[in-house]
């Protein structure tokens, strides 16, 4: 399986996928850390994160997959949502919460 197929399978088999540097507990980049915090603030359950620092093929492949040269990258139900700036803007406007709620990916209050 080539790396783009691996990515397609990852984003297709988990409702919320974050490609990041480090892990949610030990992020190794400020942008990745901020993205994890936003998803936690939205009440996302079952976040599937991929540490690109552990997998150079994924690290390169993910840039091609979404035609997006930077990390982190967020996918919800297989769709690319954006990187760190877009996540922050959508969080501040409430759009991200709505998107995640609609996708059934957050804790029910």
């Amino acid at each position: 399986m080539n790396v783009l197929d691996v990515i397609k399978k990852q984003v297709g088999s988990h409702p919320v996928v974050l490609y990041m540097k480090g892990t949610p507990d030990f992020p190794q980049c400020g942008f990745s850390a901020a993205s994890v915090q936003i998803l936690q603030a939205c009440g996302v359950k079952d976040l599937f994160s991929v540490n690109v620092l552990e997998d150079p093929a994924i690290r390169q492949g993910i840039k091609e997959y979404a035609n997006w040269p930077t990390i982190p990258q967020l996918y919800v139900n297989g769709e690319f949502v954006g990187g760190s700036d877009i996540m922050r803007e959508m969080y501040q406007s409430g759009e991200l919460q709505k998107l995640l709620d609609a996708a059934g990916t957050t804790q029910t209050a």
Binding site: W68, P69, T70, F80, G82, G83, I86, E89
Partner: peptide, 18 residues
Amino acid sequence: SRVRRHQRVYAALGERMR
């Protein structure tokens, strides 16, 4: 969309972005 806008800027920078 926001994604398409950012992609436009990334495209303008091309290889430098990588």
